[in-house]
Design a protein around this nucleic acid. Sequence first.
DNA 1: TTCACCTATAAGAAAATTCTTACATGTGAA
DNA 2: TTCACATGTAAGAATTTTCTTATAGGTGAA
Lengths: 116, 116
Amino acid sequence: MTTARPTGDELVAMLAALANPLRLRIVARLAGGRDYVSRLAREIGVSRPLLHMHLQRLEAAGLIVGTLELSEDGKAMKYYEVADFDLRLTPSVLAEAAETLTRSDPEKGPARKEQS
Amino acid sequence: MTTARPTGDELVAMLAALANPLRLRIVARLAGGRDYVSRLAREIGVSRPLLHMHLQRLEAAGLIVGTLELSEDGKAMKYYEVADFDLRLTPSVLAEAAETLTRSDPEKGPARKEQS
DNA sequence: TTCACCTATAAGAAAATTCTTACATGTGAA
DNA sequence: TTCACATGTAAGAATTTTCTTATAGGTGAA
């Protein structure tokens, strides 16, 4: 199971990734089984470039995982599947996560980019 | 406790409301006790109009509740406190929520605004 | 009256997100 | 070769979100 105690920044990234109807439907679809990009695009009814962007966002947040595989007839297929996450959101959980936020903190100067 | 099974749209609104460092810190602060707008703005180090906007966003999502009260010396004070929510995010929970999404569904036409 | 508090909103700049269109690569089969 | 698949990225438009600044109203006390 993925990170039950993410840092504040990680949590924000996860929430932001899920806070979008299309991405929520993508996760829902993948929860029913792994799938590759082109097929997923057809099923959901979205252009491939757009889906590609959303998949990257979800993967960056650690909510899905992609694997590049070769099909029997030699085509490159990128399969995605959901990560087995389990997040709980309560006021106290959020309060704890907020303590590890590094961005947008007026006290410490805003949004220093983390380096490499 | 607030809505353990929100609709897809409600869930997206909640996640969007929490997917912001400043709003996360607002919730964290209120988790430690109720507070009124001006004081909260000073403590967090944000302008009042900006805080006002974020508070509205959080309240619209049902994560905090505001009450207008009169202080002893007759001033209007708007107190906010956290709602007692408890959300669990797993692939299957999200899959279920996604079924009740009304916006951005290519099949049914995108994002019809709900009326009144 | 003027000041120090409290509330709220509007207007516009700035920045981030979302989406489209176009392009480039590769494979196997007709 | 050309077609039908698969992958990916880049550029710009359109939209939304974030933030600042300015404005307006209220109370009580100096």
